[in-house]
Write a protein that binds this DNA or RNA. Sequence first.
DNA 1: TTCAATCATGCATGTTTGTGCACGTTTATG
DNA 2: CATAAACGTGCACAAACATGCATGATTGAA
Lengths: 255, 255
Amino acid sequence: MNASDFLVQERQVRIREKLATSGRVLAGDLALEFSVSEDTIRRDLREMAAAGLCRRVYGGALAPVPPTAPFMERAAEQPERKHSLARAAVQFIEQGMLVFLDASSTNLAIAREISSISGITVATNAPLIASALMDKVDLILIGGTVDRRVGAAVGGKALSDVALLRPDLCILGACGVEAQAGITAFHLEDAELKRVIARRSRSVMTTATAEKLGTAAPHDVIAMAECGRLVVEQDTAAETIRDIEALGVEVIFAA
Amino acid sequence: MNASDFLVQERQVRIREKLATSGRVLAGDLALEFSVSEDTIRRDLREMAAAGLCRRVYGGALAPVPPTAPFMERAAEQPERKHSLARAAVQFIEQGMLVFLDASSTNLAIAREISSISGITVATNAPLIASALMDKVDLILIGGTVDRRVGAAVGGKALSDVALLRPDLCILGACGVEAQAGITAFHLEDAELKRVIARRSRSVMTTATAEKLGTAAPHDVIAMAECGRLVVEQDTAAETIRDIEALGVEVIFAA
DNA sequence: TTCAATCATGCATGTTTGTGCACGTTTATG
DNA sequence: CATAAACGTGCACAAACATGCATGATTGAA
């Protein structure tokens, strides 16, 4: 049947190779190249996307954005979903508060949303978030060596600096959120900083888009139970929510 | 259908790149470049604007600059003049250097220009400059309380942090540059920080657009003679240049 | 071998998405 | 005020899409 017969796995490996080299792939081209129907290619791509090996787009697929990519890149990904999470999160910020905003694309959305509130102070280790807030609120910049992947200062200097703060509210950015593993970061230094500031804060809050929920990442930050509030999307699986609420975490639904 | 077919996402990424480099984009040009109708381009731009990735304007779009400290408002003023100063200044940055970039609109232009150089480390107290450099160079962020007028950290914390650095090159932003008064800042804390970092640097450089030259501001930073190099525009008055060169400062003309 | 179960695939179906065009409105500029 | 360019919107159409189903190949146990 297959003129140049490929096993499914072979084909998908070839697609991955093409993605790695050119960064993009068209369904039509692939169908022609492997002499299968576009339907089959689409099935492949769907499968691969589910495994995080590519990003499905209309017409083909793109190389996956590495989760360690500068978080600004990810800010563009699902703006309206992040925006609704941000709107929900911002409601917990009250006048007079000292808020710590961790580095994350959703927190950047929060920073943009924050415009209306006055009389608050925000501390952050992320230059992009700081830029967005500079002329809106009183701002404390956490310095140190900037990690390119995280997009924020995370070194020893940053650690000792955040240890001087005592925020009323800490909004963590998370790589993954899972009932057992807790809130996770991508590397150790980032996790360490998140842990320190979270422990020093009067309350801790996190936002989680669907794809982050249930994801376990290598380094945990704090146990789920230590996070007071979690903002999730409306259509989040009821089971996931039950697991998290069972730990005493207040789950907030974004509009 | 598409002669040089682009996926939608690819096109938008390209537009973002163009925006990042040139700061502006015309709908007509883009339509031609990607061989789609202007309607499509407009839809893209509208979408991107909704995500905060650009600002829609009549005829095209501009790079997003929602935040701007007072000093940054001037960044948009005469982009091409600042750009040429920046190009001239960047040539003095060499591989392996530790460069301190002070808060100023011209320094933001320098940060944007710096893309090509590799193997350098930049330290800055300005979030906007840090944002621009984040994924280009090794970055040291100077923390502290951010002064809204300056657009950078200038408090006691920032002061003690810069005292730990020993840059090869320090590029100062100036409110005014005058042979007698020297390089001046707008308020005391800013001046103090500039002075400390300038004294600690192996070499000091400043850029001055025409309107800054000869301007005396309330607080001086360092005497003109302590500044090794001054980058000025081509059409600067010969008399001004003579006064400054008389103090042993090397004057560089921007192309 | 034989038969059933599983799998990959193509095709037909109805749906969604991106795009261009026509229309009337807004905007910049002389 | 006049004019042309840029604009937003509704509409139409084709391409890309998801899904269900039929088909033929492959596998594994009887």
